[in-house]
Design a protein around this nucleic acid. Structure first.
Lengths: 148, 148
DNA sequence: TATTGTTATACTCTATAACTATA
DNA sequence: TATAGTTATAGAGTATAACAATA
């Protein structure tokens, strides 16, 4: 392990962080312009694409404590984007289900979100994107394995 | 612009976010184990590598409002990692300067931080890292240009 | 007038712990 | 006993605005 190699890894960290940061800022302001924060968007996206979910499971997927889930779901429910639906089989369980209004909201903004991202990624051509995807996938996976 | 291409960009966004997230979590817990948060580390690193800085400039480099800089610098000063030094030429200005203790702290943990990152990046060989660096640099730069 | 830094204040997000109701 | 969700509370981190000192 040479000095040179360590510096290279640091460099990779820096460019990765910067790229992520600028993308994140852009999508953050896109979300903000649409009145949701990234956590709320993540919850809505989950419900939009995977159907209704027990609150508990939303928490484990988005990595939020149960009290925090109540808070986020409360906000989205007040805004009319989802409904709480009790589970008939297990009366302890409450589902969150996207409402018509929430569905319409996501049907409108999700494609926009995709398009924003696509534009942001415009500096890379198809082949470069494939390369980047392969490299980052490899990286992300190995780190996840390391940390468990 | 085909459906296919948009999905590819979304995919790139997802793998980039995931890779960043796992790296961030690892370095976050490294920082935490050393009693600082990422913002504090960023301030210390700036002072450690670039020398003393007017508080205002720290704010603009780390992207924090002036009130928030006071808060962060207060914490680091209380911990003995930096000192406030008034500027003799312009008495409105206060520099933050890393202390001996802060310097010793950074001299100890910065190389460790580099090594942690290097280990995390271990899934990629030198050539792959070069590719990833080139692609991410291109991406980050173009987005920054877009957003200004 | 403009700028630097501080103070006071408020807000958002998250976590924790105690609780209720079910299982 | 264990689990799902709620409530109450606290904390970290940030932003904003009003301010004092200085330019």
């Amino acid at each position: 392990m040479t000095e040179e190699e360590i510096k290279q890894s640091l460099k990779l960290y820096i460019v990765l962080s910067r790229a992520h940061k600028v993308i994140d800022e852009e999508s953050h302001s896109f979300f903000q312009a649409n009145g949701v924060n990234p956590t709320e968007f993540a919850v809505l996206e989950l419900l939009y694409h995977k159907g209704r979910q027990p609150l508990q499971q939303i928490g484990s997927k988005i990595l939020l404590a149960s009290g925090s889930i109540t808070y986020v779901v409360d906000k989205l429910e007040k805004r009319g984007y989802l409904n709480r639906v009790s589970c008939p089989n297990d009366r302890r369980v409450t589902y969150a289900e996207i409402s018509e209004e929430g569905h319409a909201f996501m049907a409108k903004i999700f494609p926009q979100h995709e398009r924003v991202l696509h534009e942001l990624m415009g500096a890379l051509n198809d082949e470069e994107k494939e390369q980047a995807i392969a490299l980052l996938k490899k990286l992300g996976r190995s780190i996840k394995d390391l940390s468990y």
